[in-house]
Nucleic acid binder design. Sequence first.
DNA 1: CGAGCGAACTTACTCGCAGTAAGTTACCCG
DNA 2: CGGGTAACTTACTGCGAGTAAGTTCGCTCG
Lengths: 199, 199
Amino acid sequence: MKRRRDRAAREREILDAAERIFGERGYQGTSMDEIAAEVGVSKPLIYQYYGSKDGLFLACLSRLRAQLLDAVSEAVLAAPDAEQAMFAGFVEWFSFLDDHPRAWSVLVDEGMLAAGPAAQAADEVRADFVELIATMVRFNLPTEHTFTDDEIQIVAQSISGATERLAIWRTKHPSPPSPTTTATTLMTFLWQGLNTLRA
Amino acid sequence: MKRRRDRAAREREILDAAERIFGERGYQGTSMDEIAAEVGVSKPLIYQYYGSKDGLFLACLSRLRAQLLDAVSEAVLAAPDAEQAMFAGFVEWFSFLDDHPRAWSVLVDEGMLAAGPAAQAADEVRADFVELIATMVRFNLPTEHTFTDDEIQIVAQSISGATERLAIWRTKHPSPPSPTTTATTLMTFLWQGLNTLRA
DNA sequence: CGAGCGAACTTACTCGCAGTAAGTTACCCG
DNA sequence: CGGGTAACTTACTGCGAGTAAGTTCGCTCG
């Protein structure tokens, strides 16, 4: 029989298994019994540590979110200007999701779904990225021409929505363009605009 | 006791109730018993007509999708050029979702989530819009400068993702900008590009 | 009218899974 | 070694999706 472990270690073990299984089968398709069996532990233990299925899912979400946001923020902050920052952010975003295919389904594809508190958490993930983007956008706009908060929001939300959708599109694409290629095309489009793109 | 009705009429009655309740409580939050009670009919009857919870949800989705796609296509086709077509499409998109708040949650907010066949259907809805947008984009681009299919897809997916996210954003906004205002800002941004926007 | 037939509809279940109450075992510290 | 507490389990409840096996309505045709 398996040894007892201290709480922190067991929690990590459970979280890892949950992330893997949620990533494979989706939120709906995963049962708590399944996760418990995977870890080799009984279901009530998970409930003691995480409270509910939503709670466990939320914990997975938070961890992934922190990792992804860190990776992207780092890339953004290292860039010398707004244009390169945005480009680097896109590349890192697509790369991270390529390298962590499971993170993906948990965070975005399914992250949207869960009713209740988990949905709220998914919104927070998005809000963080929108804020990051909004900062870059503001930074790029001239000060003399004032833009309303709603205008900035519309642009930032659009960009965030676009990247999210592109990430989904890439996972379904049989041979998706590389992160760099995807980011370049997206960047050109966002930067030049559809009209200027004609030239 | 309620009279019997013929199948088509009962199906419509069930579909209407389902659309309402799914819209209010979400997919997860809605039970088949609840819908059955609402219609004043027993659960197995719904199963006989729609096969499963997913099937019923899917039927709601299809109807709404057809309505929304029709509305947007009509606006797009009535416009004289690509720029006005896209603008008209955006306005109609946001307006429709304002006028059918329930359609909204069913189609987009929750439509993404459901595992299995319903998710597939949600993807189809998206694919239709992406195709519509891709056509407009292609129409707008010069013929001498060739773009790969992936490039067009990246742009079209981005625009579709942007509008979807903006729609979500508007529902959460305490006093969202009007469809026309939202569409104008989005259009300016997409058309001019971030860089040109500085001028 | 009235048999009888098919479609509309119901009762009364099963089963799977989230969540829980109440206990049991292993480790640690005195 | 004894006792206390954290780690863990067995054995349930309840709800909601899905189903098997009827039952009743209403229409048609003799």
